[in-house]
Amino acid sequence: MEILLQQIINGLVQGSVYALVALGYTMVYGILGLINFAHGEVVMVGAMVALAVIKVLLATALSPVLVLLLSLLAAVGVCMALGYGIERVAYRPLRHAPRLAPLITAIGVSIVLQTLAMIIWGREYHAFPQLLPNASHSIGGAVINEVQIAIVLVAVLMMAGLLLLVHRTRLGRAMRAVAENPSAAALMGVNINGVISTTFMLGSALAAVAGLMVSANYGIVHYYMGFMLGLKAFTAAVLGGIGNLRGAMLGGVMLGLIESLGAGYSGALTGGMFGSNYQDVFAFIVLIAVLIFRPSGLLGERVAERA
């Protein structure tokens, strides 16, 4: 029972991170109909920048809370600029090109970012310092620490904020209009390029926050961390129904739960044949199953035949 509860907690924490990253994929997909392959690397850059700022500021006498906030601001700022840049370089010039072309440029951007991070920060794993006291609490035998509580809370807040932004503001209405029909939106006076840039920047800001969360949770930063995370988050977005914000959140949390429960119990269920080292397989099996039985995702309305 404790194990079950523990796995659920782990799954929720991991799922919150997936959800934040998945929102970035789903927003871009909703508006442009493209997979932003470089999004995972944006998460990595966010984590790296936050770490660099923390390292510099720790030498000063600033309070840890302030250091954390400043590093978050720096990460969000850099990632937003990066998101804007990615859109300008890799997507805007190719908006009317054959479908595979922007995918390849995105892969190129991804490789460039990864390699640059490797050149700047090296191949080694960096320890992410623990800035705030991180007490553990026990719930029914399972353990949750304060960083994990903070992760879930911040994720929920950010998602609520994003929903408000998309459904209650002028900008949100413009975003939905462009997603629905770009040319009609343009005729109604929506600045399409501006909206698309903003979407990329919003998604990247969420990715920066997610990057900081992952590093604080695991205490490790690495130039390769964005790749698998991005892949999983995309899976989460598809699971929830790509293009649908609530779907991305639901998909993220569900994927986190499935993974951690799967990894926790598969060993016992298969007599030790498939242990927790198959964790990554669950994500993809879920993905394939969802796409076969419900291609539009859990909350998606569009059908799959929208290539």
């Binding site: 997909y29 598809v238 397989v281 993809f284 099996i285 993905l287 796409l291 076969i292 035949e305 290539a307």
Partner: peptide
């Protein structure tokens, strides 16, 4: 057989997942 009714990006992501599954199995 099961995935070809999907198109475009969905097919891409399923095949990507399949590739990773094979690699993880080889690894483990």
């Amino acid at each position: 057989a099961p995935t070809l009714k999907l198109r475009g990006d969905y097919l891409a992501i399923v095949t990507l997942g399949f590739g990773e599954i094979i690699r993880i199995f080889l690894n483990n």
